[in-house]
Each structure stands twice: as C-alpha cells, then as structure tokens.
C-alpha cells in the first residue's frame, strides 16, 4: 500500500487530484446548464411539466437519494480506512459503497421499466426528453463509478501494496460526483 503526505492546501493537489477536480467542475457546469434549461422549459410549458412530473415515482427517487448518500458515506469511510492502513475497513467501505450503487441501478431500472411499459420515451414531450437524458447520463456516471470501485476493491484485495492513496482518493471523488449531480437533479425532476 502506498500512501503519501500530500499538502491538500496546495492549489495543484486537492483531495482526488487536480485532473479529477477539473472534470468535476466541468460536469457540474454542464449539468447546471441543463438544469437551468429544464427550469426555462418548465416556465414555457408548466402544464405539461406538472402532469409529466406527476407520473414519476417520488418515493423511489427519494429512496435512491438515500442509497447514494449511504454509499457516499461508506466511500468516505473507506478512504479514511485506507489512509489509516486499515485495509479491512477500506475493503468493507468499498463493498458497501458498491452495494449502494448497485441498489441505485436496480431501482432506477425498475423506474425505467415502468416508464417504457407505459410507452413513455425520449420524444413523449419536453419534460421526458430532459428526464431520460439527465437521468440516463447520470446513470452512465454511476456505472462508470461502479467499474472504478470494482477495480479499486480488486487491487486492494490482490496487491494492496501497489495501490496509491491518490488513486483511492480519485476513485472516491468520482463516486461522490455521482452524489453531487443526483442531489441537484432530484428536486428539479421529481419535486418541483
């Protein structure tokens, strides 16, 4: 296991690395623009947006939010465990974070199945175009995050000495990015 004493206060070394933080900023800006566009279209077509939003399952989306938050908690705990050379805690954290992510994907699949069986697609109306694109892109991020977690957990199990703290922090930062995006998507799509 390779750990380092990085000075996080240095502009070039935020926790997770500067490259990942640039990606995080770009992603947040991109989703931010999409959310403002969604709000603008909501202003133009309030009835369509209200009736379409009424067809979404708020309970499942709230449950998914809680799952991502718990998953993020375990991810943060795993990083602390790795930093303290507590590999068991780190492994457990990675595993629990992955379970949270997989449950999120499962619930999202149930939600998607419900919409598809009602013939609600990308071109149904403006609201559902946003719904499919935004939740779809977010889901892609969750799936990529799960692959990163799988690789990190596998490396931690097979060759922990080769795993660097910077890599663990970068993987964790990407996983938390999924939380960040969802936290602003959730009220805009399901609650407003």
């Amino acid at each position: 296991m390779s750990s380092s004493s990085v000075n996080y206060k240095n502009f070039f070394y935020p926790p997770g690395g500067i490259l990942l933080w640039i990606i995080i900023l770009v992603e947040v800006i991109t989703f931010g623009f999409a959310l403002v566009a969604l709000a603008y279209n909501n202003h133009l077509e309030p009835e369509i947006f209200a009736s379409s939003r009424g067809m979404l399952n708020t309970h499942l989306a709230t449950l998914n939010t809680l799952l991502l938050l718990v998953s993020g908690y375990f991810m943060a705990d795993a990083v602390h465990g790795f930093r303290a050379n507590n590999l068991k805690k780190a492994k457990t954290g990675f595993s629990m974070a992955m379970v949270g992510g997989l449950l999120f994907v499962g619930i999202k699949s149930v939600e998607y199945y419900g919409k598809i069986s009602m013939d609600i697609g990308l071109t149904t109306n403006t609201f559902f175009t946003y719904y499919w694109l935004l939740t779809g892109f977010h889901l892609v991020h969750v799936l990529i995050g799960l692959v990163i977690l799988l690789v990190l957990r596998s490396d931690l199990k097979k060759k922990p000495e080769a795993l660097k703290l910077e890599d663990v922090e970068a993987g964790a930062a990407f996983w938390h990015l999924c939380d960040l995006i969802w936290l602003v998507l959730f009220p805009m799509l399901y609650l407003i």
Partner: peptide, 22 residues
C-alpha cells in the same frame, strides 16, 4: 439541495482541506 451538495463536497469529498480556489 444546495446545502446537501455542499455537505457532500466539503465533508465526504474533503473539500474543506483543499485550496481556497476549489
């Protein structure tokens, strides 16, 4: 939502340790 966003960024992602710019 913004409060939750910043809590995740500052506590889980440890942004509180980072340079002021971030």
């Amino acid at each position: 939502a913004a409060a939750k966003f910043l809590l995740v960024a500052f506590r889980f992602m440890e942004l509180h340790k980072a340079h002021g710019f971030w």
